[in-house]
Amino acid sequence: MTATAPSPHPAGTATGAYVDLRALTRTFGEGETAAHALRGVSLTIQAGELVAVMGPSGSGKSTLLTCAGGLDLPTSGAVLVGGVDITALSRSAVAELRRRRIGYVFQDLNLIPALTAVENVALPLELDGIRARTARRMAADALDETGIGKLAERFPDDMSGGQQQRVAIARAIVGDRRVLLADEPTGALDSETGDTVLRLLRDRCDSHGVAGMLVTHEARHAAWADRIVFLRDGVLVDESGPTPSIETLLDES
């Protein structure tokens, strides 16, 4: 697929969307055993908008998220973030964009046990060349925002699951992130704690104009989003509400 030239207007594309996914396909493997995780998915997310992607296991929703965040490259299609097609960027340029502009929250938190909460949050900033003291201050601000500023010096093992998830969210929002990508961020948390996590994501989009994508198979979590899209077998079935297509289901032989 032809790459789109980087836009001079990093605020968004012509459609105003901060994230603009165009006709993405992603195929794993080749020939008869090839698995088509995405079969031509187009999706836009405006700044300040939270979009939930729903679908059963294996529907391609996590692949869509990793492509949107530059963690994986689509087989074809364009991924525009802030008007720049990241499929056309060099590996290092994508890595830099990821570090600076895109935050990730996964079910598996990936906190480093040997680092305190504030160190965990500051780490990606330091890797990006920000001076340790500045990074630490920014990390402390992010922890304040997720409501656990007082636990900054704790190690992950000394925190509850909900507190650890707040550290992970702080790490995802620290600095000037414009995109927030969350894959089943409530994981094994009880529903009350899960609500707190969703509230944080929601507020981040509302108050900071971040473009958010929430991948979930749970309707009650998706309901926090402005818009809900439904994936089935790598196809976006409906953009306004989940209306899966039986043709898609029966299509497989």
């Binding site: 998706a222 309901a223 926090w224 509400g241």
Partner: peptide, 24 residues
Amino acid sequence: VRAIIQRQRTTTMRSLQELTTLKR
């Protein structure tokens, strides 16, 4: 039947969104 299920799911999902907004 499929259309009935689809319509119902969309409708219920919208109510769920509205309820979640009330909760928020």
